[in-house]
């Protein structure tokens, strides 16, 4: 499971070489409390600048909290070795970030390779992972990322993230750059994947629909700094419920909450 306990992050103001620090420190996340139970999916949704990505990156220690703490499986990540932590946590980002000079198989084999697995075991795992994300190994193993469409690239990235069969998977707007049809297909496959492996999934998106479909629970964040405004259950929804009245009502409710103005900050 993942638990945030009063996690906060303030980025220092931008530093311009030559001119020194410019701009004020930017609080990205403040007093952030959230629990994601093991084997459930939680979606963070909110406007730009609400610290969704920052929260995600705290989990695998790409970002270190300025205050508070983050626990993964009841252990404070601050006390864990960041590299082995990251290799145990799957991480998928919008930009995909496949290595352009490596084949699909080599990309998927990144972490097993870094851990020095024997060749046969790596090959076996790579094929299993490609099968899992719906890419026929014989056909795609030796291709390079450039020869794949956006959806396929993201599939490879997911296969790479799942190669160590992580118990925790972080996804930062993984389908945002895909067209609507491909996105729908990928959501379907992700849900099937999750249903099989039941990892703890923390997912960031801008899309209310996607949040309701993917999440068991949705956390709505407010911007500047990011704080949790509310948590909503949506485990009853899946792709087939998109047209239903209940789903539309839930979309509307989240939509209204999302656009509801925040109370004015008290004048200092």
């Amino acid at each position: 499971m993942i638990r945030f306990e009063g996690a906060a992050k303030t980025y220092p103001g931008k530093t311009d070489p030559g001119r020194g620090p410019t701009g004020l420190p930017r609080p990205a996340l403040d007093a952030f409390d959230l629990s994601v139970e093991a084997g459930t999916t939680c979606v963070l949704i909110g406007p730009s600048g609400c610290g969704k990505s920052t929260a995600l990156q705290m989990v695998n220690r790409l970002v270190v909290p300025s205050a508070g703490r983050v626990l993964v499986e009841d252990r404070d990540v601050a006390g864990l070795d960041p590299i082995s932590l990251r290799r145990r946590i799957g991480y998928v980002i919008q930009g995909v970030g496949l290595f352009p000079h490596r084949t699909v198989a080599q990309n998927v084999a990144t972490v097993p390779g870094l851990l020095g697995w024997p060749r046969a075991r790596i090959a076996e795992r790579v094929d299993a992972m490609l099968d899992l994300v719906g890419l026929e190994p014989g056909r795609y193993r030796d291709r390079r990322p450039d020869a794949l469409s956006g959806g396929m690239k993201q599939r490879v990235a997911i296969a790479r993230a799942l190669a160590m069969q992580p118990k925790v998977l972080l996804m930062d707007e993984p389908f945002a750059a895909l067209d609507a049809l491909t996105r729908r297909k990928m959501q379907e496959e992700l849900l099937a994947l999750w249903d099989e492996a039941r990892m703890t999934l923390l997912f960031v998106t801008h899309s209310i629909e996607e949040a309701l479909v993917v999440g068991n629970r949705v956390a709505l964040l407010s911007p500047h700094p990011g704080r949790v405004r509310g948590e909503y259950n949506c485990h009853e929804f899946d792709l087939s419920s998109i047209g239903s009245r209940g789903f539309q009502a839930a979309v509307q409710r989240l939509h209204d909450r999302l656009f509801e103005p925040l109370p004015e900050a008290a004048p200092r």
Partner: peptide, 13 residues
């Protein structure tokens, strides 16, 4: 070099 690739590199230590 794109940020996503840098991030990936850092993520894999």
């Amino acid at each position: 070099v794109p940020d996503s690739l840098r991030m990936t590199g850092r993520n894999y230590g």
